[in-house]
Amino acid sequence: MISLSHVSKSYFLGEEEVKAVSDISIEIKQKEYLSILGTSGSGKSTLMYLIGLLETPTTGKITLDGKDVSKLSDDTLSSLRNRYIGFVFQSFNLINKFTVMENVLLPTRYVKKGLDFNPVSRTEDLLKRFGIWERRNFFPNKISGGQQQRVAIARALIMKPEIILADEPTGNLDTKTGDEILDILEDLNKDFGVTVILVTHEKVVADRTKRKIYIKDGALAKKYL
């Protein structure tokens, strides 16, 4: 579905070049459940943003269903993120002035061509499934971390994406709550066939998935550390 070939990403801090991702080639198939494992600063997040079309590679090629994404316009990339990709972040990244409900509905505002579902009833379904329907009119800072991450997952799912990218989704949660979140993500893959990519620096988290991609200093590695 998504493939990267010889992809590198560099940042420039003044004169100095920081190579966050270097020469990575991977292929992600539909309905896959995999993790990207590496230490802090190894380039995991950058790799995930590249896969999620939030970042463009400095060199190399990313193809989506065979199409070279470097040739796509900002409008098309935005629309692809909107339709096919859902993000879940370590720090939840909810908009604090919006209620739970409004946060989940946010992606539907950016649909340009019409929806094939009722956004409000789909939001209701998702919030009920995650046990936070009673919190729908709360603001994010008035609910617990675990609940916030569920809201973020609901937001990621609202557009029925094909792929969920989760960047350290348990990083700000205690082990028990974290496990619940990981269970939800696992179920999404198992029950609905959504591709789930789990980005983490914790081996125990990565051990949940069969396929693991190890990354070190921006490049692919044979194993962790």
């Binding site: 629309s79 993120r81 909107n82 946010l106 992606p107 950016y110």
Partner: peptide, 14 residues
Amino acid sequence: EVGIRRAVGATRKD
């Protein structure tokens, strides 16, 4: 907020 909106599909024009 802008980053979040962009991530969920907002275009520059949006």
